[in-house]
Design a protein around this nucleic acid. Structure first.
Length: 349
DNA sequence: CTTGTTTGACCGGTA
DNA sequence: GTACCGGTCAAACAA
């Protein structure tokens, strides 16, 4: 698969390309130029197309209604997903990038320190990797630093910056400095604000909207689930995969995924209680989980869980110093629940 | 030999 | 204090 350098991507086309991999092609994500950048993110948060568009159409995903267009709409191009409408009914917009941002902002806007925290943790040598992950046993993020961080503020900032790094990814063409300059430097608060400036509505939402924890799942309408059928189902035994998707939200969420686009959020079920840790629960159909999510994982355990006939498998990210983890367990014949715990902020060097 | 998985033991949290 | 449960470790095993 020939891909132009990352910098040549419009954000829209970038995400379309990223999400249009087949299962086999998905394995190539590791070789995708963007993986050489410093921030990974889960396709689940940014999926845009169900691959019904030709590659030449990728990038033309906005409608005239959208006020966040980065590309003019093409005549006759119909967004097959209408993702924004389903993700946020208060906006009559089918801009997929906006939808992606809204999904993302659902994760990050609940951080009270989002735009006000003066700390720049990602620029601190040695703090960016390890503090990105909180243990599953951490229940007090702000008051209980991880073993690799002595500054409680680190957690707050990382929670914000993690999602914001993804926004910066969207904006990387305009803000190439957002990515690691010397291999360690991540986005700064000013980068973040600059990035959000490119998406004024997103910025406004980040500032004004209630945290996702206060949103109900009904506000995020489920996608049409009629397309969920054509998948092959494997055995009903546990899923054993050494690769998986990743990343987090700052609030526990369920994201179910359609079969047409394995990483397209079907719905987000917000928790009524803010979870002060990086954790996100994805539910998707098994074949897509088994293939790849762009990360390398090492399986380190397996447990039978009470009340569940299937095993739960435990994985750690193979990336050095990355403490991201995931748990994979079947929750039905064809459905898999993946729990991601911790962040992947993989910086060079 | 290397890499990755399996699996029983161990440990900590909780009821 | 104790039992249960879930998460992790690490030796054994497999590819």
């Amino acid at each position: 698969m020939e891909l132009p350098p990352f910098q040549e991507y419009e954000p829209c086309s970038f995400f379309n390309n990223f999400t249009c991999f087949t299962d086999e092609e998905g394995l190539n994500i590791q070789q995708f130029p963007f993986s050489e950048a410093d921030v990974f993110f889960p396709r689940a948060e940014y999926s845009a197309s169900n691959c019904s568009m030709s590659s030449s159409e990728h990038g033309a995903v906005c409608t005239p209604k959208c006020d966040r267009n980065t590309n003019p709409p093409k005549q006759g191009l119909v967004d097959p997903i209408a993702c924004s409408a389903s993700a946020n009914p208060e906006h009559n917009c089918t801009c997929k990038i906006r939808n992606a941002l809204e999904v993302l902002l659902n994760h990050i806007s609940e951080s009270a320190c989002f735009l006000s925290c003066p700390h720049d943790v990602l620029n601190r040598t040695g703090s960016s990797h390890s503090s990105a992950t909180t243990s599953s046993r951490d229940t007090e993020v702000e008051s209980s630093p991880t073993k690799n961080s002595n500054n409680p503020d680190d957690h707050v900032t990382m929670r914000s910056s993690e999602g914001l790094s993804s926004i910066l990814t969207l904006c990387s063409r305009q803000h190439p400095q957002s990515h690691a300059v010397d291999g360690r430097i991540g986005p700064t608060i000013s980068d973040i604000e600059s990035a959000l400036e490119r998406f004024p509505c997103a910025s406004a939402q980040a500032k004004k909207s209630p945290p996702p924890s206060s949103r109900t799942s009904k506000e995020l309408l489920p996608r049409d689930s009629a397309n969920r059928s054509h998948l092959v189902s494997g055995s009903s035994d546990e899923v054993s995969t050494n690769e998986g998707l990743s990343k987090n939200g700052s609030v526990t969420s369920d994201i179910a995924l359609t079969s047409m686009n394995p990483w397209k959020p079907l719905m987000i079920i917000g928790s009524d209680v803010m979870q002060p840790k990086y954790k996100v629960v994805l539910k998707c159909e098994k074949p897509y989980v088994v293939s790849s999510d762009g990360y390398k994982w090492r399986k380190y355990g397996r447990k039978s869980i009470k009340g569940n006939p299937y095993f739960r498998s435990y994985y750690k990210c193979r990336h050095i110093k990355c403490e991201a983890k995931k748990q994979v367990e079947m929750c039905g014949a064809d459905m898999v629940q993946i729990t991601y715990d911790g962040l992947h902020l993989h910086f060079k060097r």
